[in-house]
Write a protein that binds this DNA or RNA. Structure first.
Ligand SMILES: [Mn+2]
Ligand SMILES: [Mn+2]
Ligand SMILES: [Mn+2]
Ligand SMILES: [Mn+2]
Lengths: 218, 218
DNA sequence: AAATAAAATTAGTCTTGACTAATTTTATTT
DNA sequence: AAATAAAATTAGTCAAGACTAATTTTATTT
């Protein structure tokens, strides 16, 4: 099995792979994990030896079939634990990520499947991210953001692209949750700020960055 | 906060302290953890620096007030997670210890209390060990074993002293659980083997070691 | 009391996974 | 094409936490 660090690298590479379609470089991994590029180069060697990734100057880092499988299982565990923490233990969605970051490393052959069953086989985690099934398959990830909505259009929040507590706490303050209805009143040409109405309430202005962090369904 | 290793040492010292009343020596800790005495001496120094234990050639290792508090919290988490694994995820009592061994290290200020509430504030874990409350207090541990029962006497299983899967699986095979009624039919003088009747069923013979591992209530 | 055995300690090594500093390679400007 | 900047890599260091081997201290026998 893998060490905690190996698993965190694997998951990081998995996320970079899914997020951007681009080449995954040592620098990108280093930034994402807050580590030094030199440390990343060491770990790339280790994971390559374990046949979990391949590394090529041209293609960058890629997950092997085994690496994909292992990374998917870690993500599955992470998202299932998040559902548990929110639904069963009553945490708020800005508190669960860091705890799940530890829980995802608990190793037991049947734990994820039992937890999945206990939770009623949820499709999405509390942030709207799809939960991989035991067979590795998962529901499609949402990709349209609030920034894509046309002026006057309405939409429903289905997920967040950013899971930092800064963003999530801001959402709590704005009374935005998964399922919240948002109408785009106006787009400010100067800086692409968005004037919105949350659940039909009074108008509020949010930044472009905010709009790009909120995934919606039209 | 403490590292995983520090926590495992703390918990080990806590257990040795509760189990036997004797002096806790480096060798005892080493044996209990399966580590080398030299490694234990290193860790004793580290925990002493952190003021979690004190070490004196005469008195052996002792937990400080802070050490007791921290160790109790780890034990609390361990036993709560064991209840969760058994009651909510459907594991058997011989499968939960090793998983709880990892889960007990998950760090979050409110996790243990939330889990406690979710589980309905259980008093004992699935092995019959008392679960420390949030304030550190806990129900009394059982101390009478099947080996203490007089010939002809009856008793009820309330806890196990040994939580190895070898012992627990043997119990499953013998159909013994928490609450099971056992009658002591005969004691074999030669090797102190015990002839017992489980829930009134046909006679079975078990070893002295077995009898000393089963905690009962008369 | 001396001899022996056991326990504790020290000294030195190893692996993991981080780091910094220096260097080499690759990419981007001018 | 040369100069410069950025990215990748190498070399060397460090801390944690384990180990072995050697030594010292303490306890037990004879
Ligand atoms: Mn993690
Ligand atoms: Mn999530
Ligand atoms: Mn543990
Ligand atoms: Mn237990």
């Amino acid at each position: 099995m893998h060490t905690l660090s190996e698993e965190n690298y694997l998951k990081c590479i998995y996320r970079l792979w899914h997020d951007k379609g681009q080449k995954i470089t040592p620098t990108a991994i280093a930034e994402s994990l807050g580590n030094n590029p030199a440390s990343v180069v060491d770990m790339i060697r280790k994971l390559t030896d374990k046949q979990l990734i391949s590394y090529d100057k041209k293609k960058g880092v890629e997950l092997t079939a085994q690496g994909q499988k292992d990374a998917t299982l870690i993500v599955r565990r992470h998202r299932l634990w998040e559902v548990f923490l929110l639904e069963k233990l009553g945490y708020h969605w800005d508190e669960i990520h860091d705890i799940a970051e530890e829980l995802e490393h608990i190793k037991d052959a049947t734990l994820a499947d039992r937890l999945d069953k206990f939770l009623g086989f949820p499709e999405y985690d509390p942030h709207g991210d799809p939960i991989p099934k035991a067979n590795g398959k998962m529901a499609k990830r949402f990709s349209t953001t609030l920034a894509d909505v046309k002026t006057g259009g309405s939409c429903r929040v289905v997920a967040v692209k950013d899971t930092t507590s800064q963003f999530l706490q801001y959402l709590v303050k704005l009374d935005i949750n998964i399922g919240t209805k948002i109408q785009l009143i106006e787009e400010i040409p100067f800086d692409s700020s968005l004037v919105i109405s949350i659940n039909g309430a009074e108008h509020k202005t949010v930044s472009q960055k905010f709009g790009e962090s909120l995934l919606i369904d039209m």
